[in-house]
Design a protein around this nucleic acid. Structure first.
Lengths: 213, 213
DNA sequence: GTCTATACTATGATAGAC
DNA sequence: GTCTATCATAGTATAGAC
């Protein structure tokens, strides 16, 4: 038997996005779930552990969420919505220049992943634990977010401003850089989130052969 | 309750690296575990499911592996070793030019992740399920692999051949591109693995401001 | 080395008092 | 809305026959 309980990871803080309105114990439960799911995975975390972290009895969880899966679904939904809203807003404010649009998308993409690392990890790693029905809204937002980036890359390429070796792969690679940020970046390295975002913007523009707007 | 059994994912093939010597039912079990762990995660897959996929009774699994965790550890070990060996060999054959070294590393990094996507997913996503002792060898190889890349980037930068906005972040971003490949790339898109690797080489060289060797 | 059968524990979720 | 107590099931792993 695995004696995971004796090798408990330090869980640290875990912050929910501002868009997620939740108070009192409902919020405590969501934060506890975020910490646990990010550190141990959905299937690797039990409702008993969750209750312990939230300082409640297991049965009290079910007053706020009908099931463990619905709890995960709420986190995943909030994460996808916060991410997609941030991307869409950034793009709207970026004007019509492809390089400015790409800059805006990469900046906010990286910023979100560095600011809410646990949420990003849960959203990206634990979606397979959701039923198709519960995963569908998140999957849709994910496809839309990917399309936002691909459209910017495609448009810039068509306009003769970007020169990617392959537009699809380049878009995937740009997204990938940001997606991995929560797994390695720590503010304690001395690099600020804003600087991290600017570095990624520069890398992305270089990948596309663009010049800074 | 989740009715996952009624929404079973199609699991597809799952190939072990050539370096992993295993035959007969031991191999079948490893392949079944690779498929299941990649699709549902370690904690999301039961020994009963595993036995069913391997077409054995659950008790037969324990003749070949002492525990579920040891089974995962074997996959994770094989994956890390294959990856690290490939990187090291590629670097040895690349000569002394930083751009050539980077090209070799990125090429093999991407090739491995595209050729063994399930293994890459398990290695990257399920290591938290291992005890510290069982995870340690893999973590060590991972650190060494990251150091190989960072050293090439640092040396090329010191030699005035690379011009990254930030060497550490650039190395992390280059690694990240490859790590995400298993999650989006499919040979059915029409792009070959070799072409995918070359595209990533080009992207990485651009990120560093280098010229092709 | 594989099978049938089963032990023991952990898990998600519920009942009912307060 | 939280608690104590508990149910029903699924989980890892083992025993013993062949």
């Amino acid at each position: 038997m695995n004696v995971r309980s004796s090798a408990k990871k330090s869980l640290g803080r875990a912050s929910l996005p501002p868009s997620l309105r939740a108070e009192g114990n409902r919020r405590r439960i969501l934060e506890a779930a975020l910490r646990l799911f990010a550190a141990q995975g959905f299937h690797g975390s039990s409702m008993r552990e969750l209750a312990a972290v939230a300082e409640l009895q297991p049965s009290a969880l079910y007053v706020h969420f009908p099931s463990k899966e619905q709890l995960l679904a709420e986190l995943v939904r909030a994460g996808h919505e916060a991410h997609h809203d941030a991307l869409r807003t950034a793009l709207l404010e970026a004007g019509s220049d492809p390089a400015a649009q790409l800059t805006a998308l990469v900046r906010v993409h990286v910023r979100m992943h560095a600011s809410y690392p646990e949420l990003a990890i849960v959203v990206n790693s634990e979606m397979a634990a959701l039923s198709e029905e519960l995963a569908a809204p998140g999957m849709a937002l994910r496809r839309q977010a990917a399309a936002l980036l691909r459209d910017v890359v495609d448009r810039g390429t068509a306009m003769g401003k970007f020169f990617p070796p392959d537009a699809y792969a380049a878009a995937a690679a740009i997204a990938a850089m940001g997606l991995r940020v929560p797994y390695w970046y720590s503010a304690e390295t001395g690099m600020s989130i804003e600087r991290l975002a600017e570095v990624h913007v520069e890398l992305a523009l270089r990948m596309l052969g663009a010049v800074r707007a």
